[in-house]
Structures are given as C-alpha cells and as structure tokens.
C-alpha cells in the first residue's frame, strides 16, 4: 500500500506540487484558525495572555442561553425557507429563461436577475429600506389605493418574510445561472429524438431537462444546506429592536458575543456548534438526496 502510494506520489509529483500552494493556503487561512477557535471554545474568556482550560463551561453557558436557543430557531426557520425558495425559484426561473427564443432578451433578463448577487448586503439593505420604508416605494404605491402605510421594517409579522425575500431576490439569479449552464449542456439530439416521437415541450421539460438537471440539483441542495445556519450579513443590516426577536440568528449571536463583548471562549463555542450543526444538516441532506450515489 505504502509502496503504491509512494509510486503514485512520484508519478504525479508535478500535480501534487501544483496542489501544494492551495493546500498551504487552506491550512493557514482555514484549518489553523478553525483549530484555534476550537481550542478557544474550551478556554476561559480572555483576549490576552494565558487562557485557562474551562472544560465544557462555554458550551454549557451557550446551550442554556435563551438568546442562543432563540437564534437556533430563527436560523433554522430563515435558513430552511431560504433553501427551499432559492431552489424552486431559481429552477423555475432557469426553465422559463430556457424557453425564451430571443437571445438578447434572454441574456438581458439573465443579467438583470444576476446583478443583485454582485451587490454587497449593505447596498441591498439600503435598497430594501427604500422599497419598504414607511415612505418607501411599496407604501407610495399602496397610497394610490388609499391604503394606510404599513411599517414593514418594524412590524414583526413581516420580519422573517422580508429577510427571506431579500435573500431570494439576491441569490435567485446566481443559482438560476448554475441551472442554465446545466440545461445548455444537454445534448441537442435528445430534444430532436423527443420531437420525432411527438413529445410536447412540457413533456421534454419533464422527461429530458429535469432528469438531466438532477446532478446540478444535488450540488445546489448541498451548497444551500451548508448555508442554512450561516445567515449573517442580511440580518446585520436589517436588525432593529422591533424585529430582533424574530430574525436574530446564530452568527449574529457569535458576532455580538465575540466581537462586541470580547467573550471569545463563549463565541467560539457558539461558532463550533454552528459548524457542527452545518455538518449535521449537510450530512443528512446528502443522505436524503442520495448525493453520493450515481
């Protein structure tokens, strides 16, 4: 075995050498900080000097903290809704886009849908405030019908839907692009054969496009499941005292505890739990969709 590994390494040494910088990069910037964070989660909250071993105290503290538990619930609700809506909206959008015949129109719509993905969350937050503020576009439109203005940004009923919609609006174009690329890779002969057999366009979508997209769907589902517990930026730009109870997520908890309060041990314990939760969700999702099967 060792001989074989040695032979392999020797044979493909040039490729391994090419891979080396990438491996070093990940070790330095990903695995080392992660390891440090993991160690810190078992230490007392100290920013400088020696950090005495604290055992599981930070984990016990976090798991008893009502704010953390509320953040778990909020993260799951927002994350899972986002996951489902990102998936179906982007798939639907890609399928509709594929039906457009005019190339320029198709590309223009695709670009418009993709552009929000390039914006920072701060910009998107500003745009959404302009749209949903008390004197924003939506309320101006509603006023035409004599409707009283709705305070979307500070009404608890709208808190989660707005955050979820914000994410969908930003990312739909990106995921649709992934689906579009996969659709473009479908062999033209399959459509040709289907047409000869008299299959309608709807039938072609159902029997050719959707089955061909399964590998892409699996990849996107795994990517989305990785993001379920890691919503932060959109929350950070939109949180206020009126909606905090409903949209405060795990990473906001970690940020406020670790950065603003210098409780590094507690925040690291929270972050490690987020990591473990993400691994669990992703693992379950992989199993559920049969990601590793052919």
């Amino acid at each position: 075995m060792n001989k074989s590994l040695g032979r392999q390494l020797k044979k493909y040494r040039i490729f391994y050498l090419m891979f080396l910088p990438v491996a070093v990069y990940f070790i330095i910037f990903t695995y080392y900080p992660f390891l440090r964070g993991l160690i810190m989660s078992f230490q007392e909250n100290r920013l400088l000097g020696n950090r005495p071993f604290a055992g599981l105290a930070n984990y016990r503290f976090v798991l008893k903290d009502s704010n953390f538990l509320a953040a778990v619930a909020n993260s799951l609700i927002i994350g899972l809704w986002d996951m489902v809506l990102y998936f179906f909206f982007s798939l639907g959008f890609a399928l509709i886009l594929n039906e457009l015949v005019h190339r320029t129109v198709k590309q223009t719509i695709q670009t418009i849908a993709y552009i929000p993905y390039l914006f920072s969350w701060a910009v998107i937050g500003g745009v959404w405030v302009l749209i949903f503020d008390l004197q924003g576009l939506v309320n101006q439109f509603l006023s035409i019908f004599g409707t009283e203005p709705i305070f979307f940004l500070a009404t608890p009923d709208y808190a989660r839907p707005l955050i979820i919609a914000m994410g969908v609006w930003r990312s739909m174009g990106y995921f649709a692009l992934l689906f579009t690329v996969a659709i473009m890779n479908i062999e033209g002969q399959l459509y040709e054969a289907a047409r000869i057999d008299g299959a309608s366009r709807f039938m072609q979508i159902r029997k050719i496009i959707l089955p061909s997209l399964i590998p892409t769907m699996k990849t996107i589902i795994v990517l989305l499941s990785i993001g379920v517990l890691t919503h932060f930026d959109e929350i950070y730009v939109m949180v206020n005292p009126a909606n905090r109870r409903l949209i405060s997520t795990l990473l906001l908890f970690v940020y406020e505890t670790g950065i603003l309060n210098f409780q590094t041990g507690t925040a690291s314990a929270g972050a490690t739990l987020v990591m473990a939760g993400t691994l669990l969700i992703t693992g379950l999702m992989r199993k559920f969709i049969g990601y590793d099967k052919e």
Binding site: N67, A154, P241
Partner: peptide, 18 residues
C-alpha cells in the same frame, strides 16, 4: 453586560411604545 441590557430593554420596550 451592557449589550445584553440594551437588547433586552429595547426589544421589550419597543413593543410597548409601538
């Protein structure tokens, strides 16, 4: 823990003021 105090107070009292 001033941050926690602000969050708790503003969260509850906003509901009252609104």
């Amino acid at each position: 823990d001033a941050r926690k105090y602000y969050d708790i107070m503003s969260k509850w009292m906003t509901e009252c003021v609104m």
